[in-house]
């Protein structure tokens, strides 16, 4: 698998230099969000707001009022949990063109509860006027910057950083989910890092004779319910959602709502954090511990089909383990 180093850094810089109305805002996590090079090379387009996220969000609303399109950089969790009120009043309600770039989504951070954005999708998608995107590979990280900047209103993006695998060769387009396989036993819906997990199970499942229809979502709002329902209607056994998020309010909930509203009866297994906070640890450990990995997906599929696949951990493609201190990783968290 091709690994791309710091795709966000290059993509953001390439976009921002073409658009003087784009501003780069940071809340004291500049190198952790891969915008340190941009700060150094384009100081006139960079605004340091310090560790003061509530102010940063309303400040960005003001910049939007002045006709700028600020890109806000922090860990995802710091862009909505404390400054939620500012998000609604200063950004979402007035439809400011503010681009919230949320790094380290879900359990991709070892920082524990305070650092893990595990309800960001639920929060963001319930807000009127918000667009919610999630990058699942290097190509999507590269294309999310320009694509988010086309939105006539605020956007929240889940961004991957450091060494990111390249899974796709076509750019992210808002509203266009990716159909990664077209099987007819089970529908699997993933987004972000869980797509790579599902791909790890792909050949083992094929070998076990399970025909999987796999959808990768990069646009969580607006949500294409009609397409989800069509795909769900074309499988025999049911649907599994696998998300790097709480199952309540996230992709599992969106799919459930879509099926219910269409009156389509399909069983649904929702994998992700099951109404629990997580703790700190490595990403592979957390995904295993909380039942969000390829093996959990296989077991969920077995529950739907009622048949054991005989697949164990050894039959799955290896987990990618990131070096604790790889050179492309930000120094701190």
């Amino acid at each position: 698998m091709e690994m791309v180093n710091r795709p966000y850094a290059a993509a953001f810089e390439a976009h921002a230099v073409q658009h003087p109305e784009v501003l780069c805002l940071s809340a004291d996590l500049t190198s952790s969000c891969e915008i340190d090079g941009f700060r150094d090379r384009h100081p006139g387009q960079f605004l340091s707001l310090g560790m003061a996220e509530q102010n940063m969000l309303s400040f960005a609303g003001g910049l939007g009022l002045a006709g700028f399109r600020p890109f806000l950089h922090s860990f995802g969790v710091f862009l909505y949990r404390r400054p939620y009120d500012q998000l609604v009043a200063s950004i979402a309600y007035p439809r400011r063109k503010v681009r919230l770039m949320g790094f380290l989504p879900g359990v991709t951070t070892p920082g524990g509860m305070t650092h893990q954005a595990i309800e960001d999708i639920a929060v963001m998608r319930t807000l009127p006027n918000m667009t919610v995107l999630e990058a699942g590979d290097a190509t999507e990280v590269e294309s999310i910057v320009a694509e988010a900047d086309t939105v006539d209103g605020p956007v929240y993006c889940r961004i991957l950083r450091g060494a990111v695998p390249r899974l796709f060769d076509t750019p992210l387009r808002i509203g266009q989910m990716r159909v990664l396989s077209e099987g007819d036993d089970v529908l699997v819906v993933t987004a972000g890092v869980t797509t790579e997990e599902a791909i790890r199970a792909r050949s083992a499942l094929a070998g076990a004779g399970v025909s999987v229809r796999h959808l990768h979502l990069n646009t969580l709002k607006p949500f294409d319910a009609a397409q989800i329902v069509d795909h769900a209607a074309s499988v025999r056994h049911g649907v599994v959602t696998l998300e790097n998020h709480l199952v309540n309010g996230g992709i599992g909930s969106m799919v459930a709502e879509a099926l219910a509203e269409a009156g389509l009866a399909r069983r649904l297994v929702r994998l992700g954090l099951q109404d629990t906070y997580a703790h700190g640890g490595s990403r592979p450990y957390l995904m295993r511990h909380y039942g969000m990995d390829a093996l959990a997906l296989v077991r969920a599929i077995e529950r739907l089909t009622g048949q054991s696949t005989g697949i164990d951990e050894g039959a799955l493609e290896a987990v990618r383990v990131e070096a604790v201190h790889s050179a492309v990783k930000a120094e701190a968290l």
């Binding site: 969790v77 710091f78 949990r81 404390r82 070892p110 920082g111 524990g112 509860m113 305070t114 650092h115 703790h279 700190g280 640890g281 490595s282 450990y285 511990h289 968290l333």
Partner: peptide, 22 residues
């Protein structure tokens, strides 16, 4: 992994009583 001695002190980490990572 699996330890309570977390990098960002959690409230279950030695010497901590509340989460302060934010």
């Amino acid at each position: 992994d699996g330890s309570s001695v977390e990098m960002i002190g959690a409230e279950h980490s030695p010497g901590m009583e509340v989460h302060n990572g934010t």
